[in-house]
Amino acid sequence: MPSDRSEGGAGWLAIFLALMLIALAFVVALATTIGDFSIGLGTVVLAITNGFGLTHADIPRIQEAVVWDLRLSRALVAALAGAGLAICGAILQALLRNALAEPFVLGVSAGASTGAVCVIVLGIGAGSLTLSMGAFAGAFAAFALVAILSNGATSGPNHTILAGVAAAQLFNALTSYIVTTSGNAQQARDVMFWLLGSFGGVRWGDFQLLTVVIALGLAICLWMARSLDAFTFGDEDAAALGVPVARIRLILFAVTAMITATIVSMVGAIGFVGLVVPHAARYVVGPIHLRLLPACAAVGAVFMVLADIASRVVATQQTVPIGVVTALVGVPFFAIILYRARPQA
């Protein structure tokens, strides 16, 4: 029974997290062995141990680089992105007391898209660095707009969601306006690809940046986990329990905007993970955030690595956008959870 698990102390959580970590190690290992370039298992292992400096085996440079620089860095960035989006989803669902809340509900994704499209189509700057910075700036512009519209997040969850919807509409309209008035077919395709997300361009530098941002974000969220629990009862009850509601909400919004903007500027707007994973994790470990957040991180990481593997192998000599896969794989999975979690008559 789910209620037993959620009340049942740290033992169940520890077992679950251990299982998920083993699963994560397994899927990352799988990700390093699967790909267009066929490389033997022994060579893969040696390439990884070489990368960590444990061995100095003499294997072909090209195979070593494919495993270490392309596949492993990609798998780990995918894991972090999945973890980050899932954490953000859980936080926002709690803060806004809305089961449909997800990282993009604050308009962050729409803002990032507008920023990226400005760079792609209007040619403000060039190259991937300016693209990321454009996306990041757009994401924070959207976040700032939502914060202003909802009075620095003091005016309650519904107001914030409406502000987020308004911001998303505004920035989506801006994106469409720019693409239709100044883009050509090729640019429209670039934009579409960017909007659906891709782990194609990530390298070790991205991994390091994302590690710092997500570790910091997760630490802040865990530190405020008890306050988050109080939010579940509503703003007034939380305030009665001594939680500084407005301040904590603003801080946690800023943390989620930071994590989401970093992820979106790196790999594009990958939908569905932030919405679904918290529900799945809540079903397994219960709603207490000190347990839910680590579980979300673990489940999100495993799910995203699996989705990325699928996006690479589903079409030969072509990469399918990751956002397509997360939804195609995620919806049936989500359907099972919904079905099993239906209220008992």
């Binding site: 494919v66 072509q318 990469t319």
Partner: peptide
């Protein structure tokens, strides 16, 4: 060999080709 006119492909795929 893809049917697509303008496929996008990561470097692993290019190395493998």
């Amino acid at each position: 060999k893809t049917e697509a006119d303008w496929p996008t492909l990561g470097w692993e795929g290019i190395l493998a080709a």
